[in-house]
Amino acid sequence: MKKRDSAKGARYGMVIDLDRCTGCGTCTIACAAENNVSVLYDESDKTRNINWLKIYMLTNGKAFPHTEVVYLPRPCMQCGNPPCVPVCPATATTNDSDDGIVSQIYTRCIGCRYCMAACPYHARDFNWFDPAFPKGMDRYLSPEVSPRMRGVVEKCSFCHHRLMSAKSKAYFEGRRDLREDEYIPACVEACPTQAITFGDLNNPKHRVSELIKNPSAFRLLERLGTEPKVYYLTTKDWMRRMADNYLQGESKKEGNRPEKKNG
């Protein structure tokens, strides 16, 4: 069931520089605030809470004081060949061919969770509970994103509503193309160390298209053929190796398949 990247227009993607990222969590909070993500009483239950942008803490396992830690922010990978989209029985998640964003239609989702089984990144969260906001906190909810109801799956949308408003703004100004800085997801904007770069991977003028050519750029689980549009940068070899599964004695290069061009 391998399909080639179906995006025809823009192919929005992100490059996260792990050497820059301090794992402070500001992106996660910006994301939650921007997208009306609900708050559980017990947010320590990472298998049930809603976190569109989860941060992993990875270590090289070396003894003190040679220990190294990398904080790895994991939004939805917005795969070019998303495993989740074709499996949805109710067409509640789609891969937009204009921008390459994998969207989720909350009002159509029936909550079967097949997409979650399909996604190897755990990027999708199911609402096990009614969306909860501590008393009074529903006052900060943004009308730009509808809060989800219990029983549906939700996930990072690359702040799709921001793309929509940037597009309408451009449309009213008679432009067809968006400038690089016109559409930026909340996490990218919030990152205090500017570790995340965002843009159209198809557009040679956008910094991301340059950054992904960096030899230290990699993606998570490239071998599965999901064609993620979230790239990472690091100079740490152990981290690059931890991004995918490798057989013993296999080098990263052998393990990687060449990136497919979108068609």
């Binding site: 074709p86 499996v87 949805c88 029985p89 109710a90 067409t91 509640a92 159509r108 989702c109 029936i110 909550g111 079967c112 969770r113 097949y114 199911f126 609402n127 109801m149 219990r150 029983g151 549906v152 799956v153």
Partner: peptide, 17 residues
């Protein structure tokens, strides 16, 4: 999760699934 919308499978059927 949304039994009352179960019929969306038929209404919004995704033939690839």
């Amino acid at each position: 999760g949304q039994p009352l919308r179960g019929w969306f499978i038929f209404w919004h059927a995704n033939v690839h699934s």
